[in-house]
C-alpha cells in the first residue's frame, strides 16, 4: 500500500473509532491507531476539512475537543469501519488457530469463538485457511486451572514433572504471568519450595489446583522478568557438541539445536545449550546411534556410564 492509501484507510476508520470511543484522550487514541500524537493531530486537521458535497458548515466532519479528549460530533456518514481485507482476516485467523493449540496462552474455547465471529464479520469463509467446523482444542484441567490462577491472581498447588531431574514434585507457587519462549508456553511463578522464580512448562504441569489464597510473589521477583537464558544460548550455560545422523535431522524442528556444519556423509554437527547434565545425558541416550556426543568430555563419560549400567540391568533381567 502506498502512503496515501495507508492514510486514507486510517482516516476512514478513524471517524467510527472516535464514535465508538467517545471522549478518548489523544494519547490513548494515538496508541490505538498506531500513530504518534503529532500524526494524530495532522490526521484530525485533515479529517476536519473533509465532508459531504456542499462543504458548508453542516457538511464537514466535526469534532469537539475538550481538554485532552476528542469526540466526533458529525461523521458525514462514515459510521462504520471498512470491512476486513482478506489478508487482514487471514493474519488474525491463522494466528488465533495456531495459538489455540498452545496450552495456557489463551482460553481455547474463546479463541475458537473469536475465530467464528471474525470469520463471519469478514465474510472470508473458505478463504485461505481451514474453514470446516472445528471443535476447540481440549484444554487440560491443569492448564485451565493455571490460567485461572494467573488471571485471578491466586496461588496454585501444582504437580510438576521436572524433566531435568526426572522427578514429579508437588509445589505451591505464586503465579506471575504466562510466558511464551521459543515454541513452548510456561507459567512464570514464585516457587515457595525453591524460594525463587521458576518457569513451569505447561505441558509438564500434571495437575493444578487454584488455592483459596492470593498469589503474592515478592515484588522484586515480579519485576525481574523471566529468566530465559536457556533459550538464548546463554554463554554461562554449558553447551554440548553433538553429531546427528541424517535420519534424525527432524530433531532440528523440535529442539534448540544450532547447526554448526554438515559433514560430507550428511551427518550434522550441532550445538545445544542445556542446564542439567542429567537431562542432557538422557536426551542423548534415548536417540541411540543417531546422536553422539563429541563434547564436553564429562557428558561423553556420563552417557557411556549410564548406557553400560543399563546394559547390566538388562543382563540381570535375563
Amino acid at each position: 500500500m502506498t502512503a496515501v492509501s495507508t492514510r486514507l484507510v486510517r482516516l476512514l476508520n478513524m471517524v467510527p473509532y472516535f464514535q465508538a470511543n467517545p471522549k478518548i484522550t489523544y494519547a490513548k487514541a494515538a496508541s490505538d491507531l498506531g500513530v504518534t500524537e503529532k500524526q494524530l493531530r495532522d490526521d484530525l486537521n485533515q479529517l476536519w476539512l473533509c465532508g459531504l458535497p456542499g462543504y458548508g458548515p453542516g457538511d464537514l466532519i466535526d469534532f469537539e475537543f475538550s481538554g485532552d479528549t476528542i469526540e466526533v460530533t458529525f461523521s458525514a456518514g462514515i459510521d462504520h469501519p471498512l470491512r476486513l481485507t482478506s489478508p487482514e482476516a487471514t493474519g488474525v485467523l491463522v494466528a488465533l488457530r495456531a495459538l489455540a493449540d498452545v496450552p495456557g496462552m489463551v482460553d481455547p474455547a474463546a479463541a475458537r469463538s473469536a475465530i467464528a465471529k471474525i470469520e463471519s464479520a469478514a465474510g472470508t469463509l473458505g478463504h485461505g485457511t481451514e474453514a470446516v467446523d472445528e471443535p476447540a482444542p481440549i484444554e487440560s484441567d491443569a492448564a485451565a486451572a493455571v490460567r485461572a490462577g494467573v488471571r485471578d491472581g491466586r496461588a496454585l498447588a501444582i504437580e510438576y514433572y521436572a524433566a531435568s531431574h526426572d522427578m514429579l514434585s508437588s509445589r505451591v507457587v505464586d503465579p506471575i504471568r504466562v510466558v511464551l519462549v521459543a515454541d513452548n508456553s510456561y507459567v512464570e511463578a514464585w516457587c515457595r519450595t525453591a524460594e525463587g522464580v521458576r518457569l513451569f512448562r505447561f505441558d509438564r504441569i500434571v495437575d493444578a489446583r487454584v488455592l483459596d489464597e492470593p498469589s503474592s510473589p515478592p515484588q522484586p521477583a515480579v519485576q525481574a522478568g523471566p529468566d530465559t537464558s536457556l533459550f538464548d544460548a546463554d554463554p554461562s550455560l554449558p553447551s554440548a557438541k553433538l553429531l546427528i545422523d541424517r535420519s534424525a535431522s527432524w530433531m532440528f524442528d523440535y529442539y534448540p539445536l544450532r547447526e554448526v556444519r554438515q559433514l560430507p556423509d550428511g551427518t550434522l554437527e550441532a550445538e545445544m545449550t542445556y542446564a542439567s547434565d542429567d537431562w542432557m545425558a538422557r536426551f542423548v541416550l534415548g536417540f541411540g546411534s543417531a546422536v553422539r556426543v563429541l563434547a564436553p568430555e564429562s557428558l561423553v563419560a556420563r552417557v557411556r556410564e549410564s548406557a553400560a549400567a543399563a546394559l547390566s540391568a538388562y543382563a540381570a533381567a535375563g
Partner: peptide
C-alpha cells in the same frame, strides 16, 4: 495485515487491548 485488522476492530468498538500483562512473549 494484523495491525490493519486491529485498527478496524477497534473502530468497530472492540477493545482488543484487554489487559494482557498476564501474558509475556519473549524475544525468542
Amino acid at each position: 495485515a494484523t495491525q490493519g485488522a486491529l485498527l478496524k476492530l477497534r473502530a468497530a468498538g472492540v477493545d482488543v487491548d484487554a489487559p494482557h500483562a498476564d501474558v509475556a512473549i519473549t524475544s525468542t
